[in-house]
Write a protein that binds this DNA or RNA. Structure first.
Lengths: 217, 217
DNA sequence: GTTGCGATGTATCGGGGCGATACATCGGAC
DNA sequence: GTCCGATGTATCGCCCCGATACATCGCAAC
């Protein structure tokens, strides 16, 4: 218990920040929130909720589902954020160091960009980009080193990975440009500008290695 | 122990199939072999080697590193494949069911395509593709469902993920076309045709969520 | 009207694999 | 002569996933 990287904690706190929820619904929103980035299972969620309960960031509430329902059975536990929990979430939102743009954490931070300070957003985006460029170097070096020494298909796999990261860098560049324009020029649009795709239609690159979820069972 | 999905076991067997290796070198090649697909640490490798030893797929050999070196210290344990290990590897190579194209396994199977039967290759590629197309449906549905209900940045994340999978499907399509041409027309080229990129230069999409490695520490 | 089934809902257990860590030796730079 | 980074072997804590087990609800089929 406890050490938990924080991504689950962060996401739960953020979701509960808007409205109290019970586990089942929470998980669905969680996996929608994080998109293809990653997906959590109950085996992670419930232990995490217990921790959050223990530390006092959230409290549970046996909801009278329908007001008219007779008391007794029909549990349905609703979790809601405490004042300390909100404070904690704000702290996490403010993070702009390397931990905010590492592989595991970037996705969540990005998902909550709507509630993040503009300067922090930009710093995270740029940190992420330089992280990926760093990795790109390593990839290119590895590709050059192993060329002619490994299987053709292995090379294809490496090239494939390389191009994915390249695409992700391009994606970040677009986002950074958007942020810069919005930030300096007009002062304050809602979140991100209309997003007129520059030229080529496909650019991104996150992709999920860890299992999609969506459909249970 | 034991239940091990098989990807590590598979990769180790395949690497050792070419030449005996010791742990350190094995890990480096492992992570080169799998490219951006995934990266294993010693915490996984050594326990796996123990299992393989136990089941008899491999044996260890205290290598006389340089022939002239005096015996005694300087351990350097070299692992080599047994006949049973080779057999096991062949069995794994022949797999063409769903397990061969699931997220966790597809990468390894692909990495060893050079030693895989052409028909099996095609079946795996096609299985993978339909798996991804299935997922695409879910994504699109989720995107439509959550639109206007979630954060702008969250939507961007979802779109990003969606496009990544779309790109991966295009990549698979190219590969499948290549396989088909090679297989029917000329009978037998070495592995994959010269790979003249059709039109647009960027297409792939695997990307790594789970940590790159390459640089230790 | 009851039978069945899929969605909603809560919860735990086993264990795979990662990150950190601890050592030890080697070759070369300074 | 010594410091440092690469080579090398190995373990431990623990996060998180997948599988699994229940229980209830609404609703459609028969």
């Amino acid at each position: 218990m406890s050490k938990r990287t924080g991504v689950l904690e962060f996401a739960v706190l953020g979701l509960l920040h808007e409205t109290p929820l019970h586990g089942y619904e929470l998980r669905k929103r969680l996996n929608a929130l994080l998109g293809a980035f990653r997906a959590f299972s109950y085996g992670s969620l419930y232990p995490c909720l217990k921790d959050l309960l223990r530390t006092g960031w959230i409290v549970e509430d046996v909801a009278s589902d329908a007001p008219a329902a007779l008391a007794g059975k029909r549990s349905k536990i609703v979790y809601k954020l405490t004042a300390e929990g909100k404070e904690r979430f704000q702290d996490l939102l403010g993070e702009s160091g390397p931990s905010a743009w590492e592989d595991e954490n970037f996705g969540v931070h990005f998902a909550f960009f709507g509630r993040t300070d503009a300067a922090t957003r930009l710093r995270i985006l740029e940190g992420r980009r330089s992280r990926l460029e760093e990795r790109l170097e390593g990839f290119r070096a590895a590709l050059a080193r192993t060329r002619e020494r490994v299987d053709t298909y292995t090379q294809e796999l490496q090239r494939h990975g390389l191009e994915s990261v390249e695409r992700e860098v391009r994606w970040l560049n677009e986002l950074i440009d958007s942020e810069r324009q919005t930030g300096s020029a007009a002062g304050q649009h809602k979140t991100v500008p209309p997003r007129q795709r520059t030229t080529q239609p496909g650019t991104t690159g996150v992709a999920g290695s860890r299992g999609r979820a969506t459909n249970e069972h």
